[in-house]
Design a protein around this nucleic acid. Sequence first.
DNA 1: TTCGTAGTGTGATATACCTCACACAGTAAT
DNA 2: ATTACTGTGTGAGGTATATCACACTACGAA
Lengths: 187, 187
Amino acid sequence: MHQILREHIEKIVPLTDDEFAFVASHFISKKYKKHQFLIQEGEAVKYHYFVVSGLLKLVYTDDTVKQHIVSFAMEDWWESDFYAFYTQTEATMSLVCLEDTEVLCLTLGDYKKLCNDVPKMNRFFLEKANFGFLGAQRRIISSLTSNSQERYEQLLEQYPALFQRVPKSLLAAYLGVSRETLSRLSS
Amino acid sequence: MHQILREHIEKIVPLTDDEFAFVASHFISKKYKKHQFLIQEGEAVKYHYFVVSGLLKLVYTDDTVKQHIVSFAMEDWWESDFYAFYTQTEATMSLVCLEDTEVLCLTLGDYKKLCNDVPKMNRFFLEKANFGFLGAQRRIISSLTSNSQERYEQLLEQYPALFQRVPKSLLAAYLGVSRETLSRLSS
DNA sequence: TTCGTAGTGTGATATACCTCACACAGTAAT
DNA sequence: ATTACTGTGTGAGGTATATCACACTACGAA
């Protein structure tokens, strides 16, 4: 059933059939349509989501009602308002479908249970967290060192699929430039 | 000896005396003077560093020789060129003392050994990694949503000690503004 | 003392980017 | 066929910030 999840985990730690069955039993599968909300700002965050198929945006809305893309999440990625999930506080961001999307959902209790009961999964989540941190740090360095043009090129180089699947106005909101400026970049 | 390390770890997971002794045996202590390099761009990164006392800057130098502050690290923080450390590749950043600094050093082999042999330490490092990710994500959101003035205020609110201990030109290099602009901010 | 260096402030000008406005194409619903 | 909506491009003008230049202070070394 969750073959994709198994392959995803086994890129980092090998699992026996029994181990994977135990792990998989903690997830529930959900399907959403384009434009649906998985997380709504202000509400509780029940799950950390593993994306089986589809595409999500994690959106932060500031005081002036302007929307900023904190992250995109496609197949094989984990996403949530992780701060709200991890500290069980209310969401400051929204998680929204850009395409019809299937996810596997894990509660915080089960996340901790898997870490405690299955050492391999603790190591798996540590590896995910470390690379998540490195990805964020990379983006910070990019914003410190590069102008709009360069950041746009880096984004397309790193995630060429986004160019096909996401409107440019959202790429602009991810990069922190206006859609007009992005449109004027020569590329 | 490493009482500070013990308190630091026990904020997250309690340890028996034996467990802590085992953990502590994997660290070596080093002392550096202001201006000394713990990590030099282009060289290997042997350690992940826990700062016992003092203050460090993690610096990325771009093509145009301009320096950007990726991070400051003070007492009770972990720091390294984590990508280079974790993947055992050569450093793309430098880690430099802003003050005389004492650190506890952990190799990647021992980091993994502690994760494998001491489940509590695996959970400890997972918690650190998760909060490290959240800190980086917070900074990304700040750069997307706020102007220089606001980012400067947020920085001083979050780490008031920095204002006393580091020159403003370095705070500017952390925020991604010129030192002149920072100097002109009304605060 | 005198010198060099680090840190900071400030004026003048340049520039990257934002904002507002409008136009136009593609698509889905009526 | 008409309408509404989304996505995109582009001009004009405004603003935040960068860059360059210079001045001033504090401080340690010779």
